[in-house]
Computed example of a mutant assay.
Amino acid sequence: MTNITVPNNYGYVLGISLIATPLLAFAHGTITGRKRRAAKIPYPNAYATAQEMKANPAAYTFNCAQRAHAQFMENAPQTMMHMLVAGLQYPNATIALGLGWLVARMLYLYGYIYSDKPQGGGRYLGTWFYLAQAGLMGLVGMTALEIIS
């Protein structure tokens, strides 16, 4: 049996994973909702059509916001869990990678929605969030190995 000791600075891990990440999700949703209203895209349509985007530039911006939000939601749950687990054994590295992930996700959001690059190309500004995610996955693997052995 392995005992798990919570490190003294684990509160920062909790804050990044369970407070800052949901706040960023809320920001994504708020921005996407505003862009939806500006584009006049009714529910339940998830995206504007190509015809709507041709006729209304705000519809294109809405699609970029919607995709950035969806992509965030595709990655946030497992990243949050990775932070919670990795932070038990490697709190400092988890804090650094978690903050890096959040900054990269904000840059991704900003670049996708507010850049003038075609096809949402501004999102590449923050795609290095994948490196932070990979680092967190590696820390989870190392934590698991330490618990197993």
Rank of each mutant, 00 (worst) to 15 (best):
P7Y: 10
P77W: 00
L109H: 01
M80Q: 08
M73D: 10
L84H: 04
A70Y: 14
G98P: 05
V6Y: 13
H69P: 03
F72L: 06
N45F: 15
M137Q: 07
G15L: 09
T127P: 11
P44I: 09
P44C: 05
Q119Y: 08
V85G: 08
G11W: 04
G120N: 06
P7S: 01
I41T: 05
Y12K: 14
L97E: 10
K117S: 03
N92C: 08
G33W: 00
S17R: 04
N56A: 06
L14K: 14
A59S: 00
L24W: 15
Y110N: 03
G100E: 02
M81Y: 09
A86D: 05
L139E: 10
N8S: 13
G138K: 04
L139Y: 02
A65M: 12
L84S: 02
V85M: 01
A86R: 06
G135S: 14
P7E: 00
I31E: 09
Y130E: 14
L24S: 13
L88Q: 11
A96D: 08
I148C: 03
Q119V: 11
T61S: 07
Y124T: 10
T61L: 11
G141L: 10
G87L: 00
G121V: 15
T2L: 15
M80A: 06
L18F: 11
K54R: 14
G33A: 12
R105E: 06
N3F: 07
Y90W: 07
P42Y: 07
L14S: 03
M142A: 08
Y12R: 10
L145C: 05
L84V: 07
L125D: 05
Q78M: 15
